[in-house]
């Protein structure tokens, strides 16, 4: 019995808790991608770099706060800085929308032109972020490191295995949950949110109904930039901030959005968790887990790891391909392709 409990705790510690946190981060990123796809109708390749930009702004404000002695006690100072980062990300998104995307929108250019334009924006954002904060790793988390420490957990329960929950993981899950609720309330209940859905569903009819497309686009960028900054900051707190890593997050985020059904917010959330848990479960070494569950004295050869952690991109990709082949509209029906 105790072995089974140990095995469960072990799995929670290394698979379930990290998977939940990572899944929430991906989901927030994918929500931004999916909203832009639903309203502006293109895959935004600059989304990873928008996350990096917003997070960078959060880090800079965090450092300023730290240097003048403002802190949030047990939770990271970055949470106080978050609104400022969101404002910065919204500002730059709207700047790029006015100067770049609006032109093509008025011209009704095909989606691929928007995608190429977003590659240009990606380069520029990438350059800006590296110019300001540099290409290296930045650690900006402070406050308490753990909600539950492994040692405390062991003492509390008397088990061999400890369950550690990092503050950043706890905050990620709580913040992501609140943000998602707020977003769904907005989309389902508010007049502007409904207008966004209507515009995404049927642009011509939305125009006939007197919905102002500029306003819908404005709100979409505001929400996407806010989501990107929140996702980026949570990821940075949980792991660390490095511009190139954020650029690379683009792939799992796209995978999440497509797997869930692109254009469908619920799908983006489901997709984020599917991708995160697949990555974590496939790259986890199950040796110790099996020792607990197997007969006394037995141990498997090797680490029992399905794939090395370096192949985590491959996992998102394989799931992506499978979904595209079996159910091209995603788990939840997204935009019909």
């Amino acid at each position: 019995m105790e072995d089974i409990l140990n095995a469960i705790v072990l799995l929670s510690n290394f698979v379930i808790v990290p998977g939940l946190a990572y899944g929430a981060q991906l989901a927030l990123g994918a929500l931004g991608v999916t909203l832009i796809y639903a309203v502006l109708r293109f895959s935004n390749f600059a989304h990873g770099d928008l996350m990096a930009f917003g997070t960078m702004a959060v880090i800079l404000v965090t450092w300023t706060f730290q240097s003048v002695g403002i802190s949030a006690g047990p939770v990271p100072t970055a949470l106080l800085a978050l609104p400022f980062g969101i404002l910065a990300a919204i500002g730059i998104s709207l700047l790029f929308d006015r100067s770049v995307y609006k032109f093509y929108r008025t011209k009704k250019s095909p989606p691929v032109v928007f995608v190429i334009a977003s590659v240009g924006v990606m380069f520029m954002l990438n350059g800006i972020v590296r110019f300001i904060i540099g290409p290296g790793d930045q650690n900006f988390s402070d406050g308490g490191r753990f909600l539950i420490k492994a040692r405390e957990f062991k003492e509390m329960t008397g088990l061999n295995e400890g369950l550690a929950i990092k503050t950043s993981q706890g905050i990620t899950i709580i913040v992501a949950f609140l943000v998602m609720i707020a977003l769904f309330w907005f989309l389902q209940k508010s007049r502007t949110g409904k207008a966004m859905r209507a515009y995404s569903d049927n642009e011509d009819l939305a125009l006939l109904s007197g919905i102002n497309p500029d306003r819908v686009v404005l709100y979409t960028w505001i929400i996407a930039a806010a989501l990107a900054t929140i996702a980026g900051t949570l990821y940075g707190l949980d792991k660390s901030f490095k511009p190139f890593t954020y650029f690379q997050l683009l792939l799992p985020i796209f995978a999440a959005a497509i797997v869930g059904g692109i254009g469908n917010p619920l799908g983006a959330i489901a997709g984020g968790f599917v991708i995160a848990f697949s990555e974590v479960t496939v790259t986890y070494a199950y040796k110790k887990f099996l020792i607990y569950l197997g007969p006394e004295g037995w141990a498997p050869d090797g680490l029992v790891q399905l794939l090395s952690t370096d192949y985590k991109f491959a996992v998102s990709f394989v799931i992506l391909v499978l979904v595209l082949l079996i159910r091209p509209t995603g788990i939840f029906k997204g935009k019909v392709i």
Binding site: K194, R197, A198, D201, N202, D204, L205, A206, L208
Partner: peptide, 11 residues
């Protein structure tokens, strides 16, 4: 009332 696509199908 347009001839086609005249409702918001997902709403």
């Amino acid at each position: 009332v347009p001839q086609t696509n005249n409702v918001f199908a997902s709403m």
